[in-house]
Amino acid sequence: MEVPKKSNTAKRLADDILINILIRLPPKSLCKFMVISKAWHSLISDAYWEKFQVSTKIGTSFIPYSRRVYLNGIIHIVASKRHVVAIDLDSMVCRRIEMPVIKPLIRNALLGNLTRSLHYADKRNKEMNIWMLKDYESGEWVLKHSVVFEVGFNVMAFHPEMDIVFLRMLNNKIMSYKMSNGELKEVCKLRHKSMRGFFVFSPFFGEDVLESKFGV
């Protein structure tokens, strides 16, 4: 979008508008559009990719994770160390869900979308427990998986489509852990040590949003 560069405010507004549009595109288009111009490249990469980007062989990329998870029309926010707040965007009904376990430090825990339902990973020393929210009404969680690793790690992200959890090992490597068979695979090595969390960007997520709105 070519908007006359009148002032910083005008430029920032134009950038905001463009980012608001870009976030609705599937990652494939987003990556392609980086070659349009310097401005587009920096907008796309600043916001999502460059600093945190680790592209992998399977075409999945990571962007910094936040403590908000959007799933089935509901936004889930880690509100405190004891609670998750779920907001239904259609009805705007808010619900407070108690965490399966209370953690003194939220950073060692992770809320996420795994195979299209809300999951919570809780790490204690070398042990990892993965909980799944079974019922919104009662706020009941079920312990889905429990595993003890030999080395130190951090839970980084859930895979939205498969039963995979991404872990960061002490040597800054990202490993994928498959719950069904316990398979641990190296995905990539991080360039930045400061990264604390990710959000797995699946190539088909953006498409879904567009399809549901416009049937394209």
Binding site: M1, E2, I17, N20, I21, L22, R24, L25, P26, S29, K32, F33, V35, I36, S37, A39, W40, G206, V209, L210, K213, F214, V216
Partner: peptide
């Protein structure tokens, strides 16, 4: 934004440059 994203989605980078008069 959703409409715009739908417009952009199927286009190539070159098509977008032309449409919006963007200099590479």
């Amino acid at each position: 934004a959703v409409t715009f994203a739908g417009m952009l989605k199927m286009k190539s980078p070159e098509e977008i440059r032309q449409k919006f008069n963007i200099n590479n």
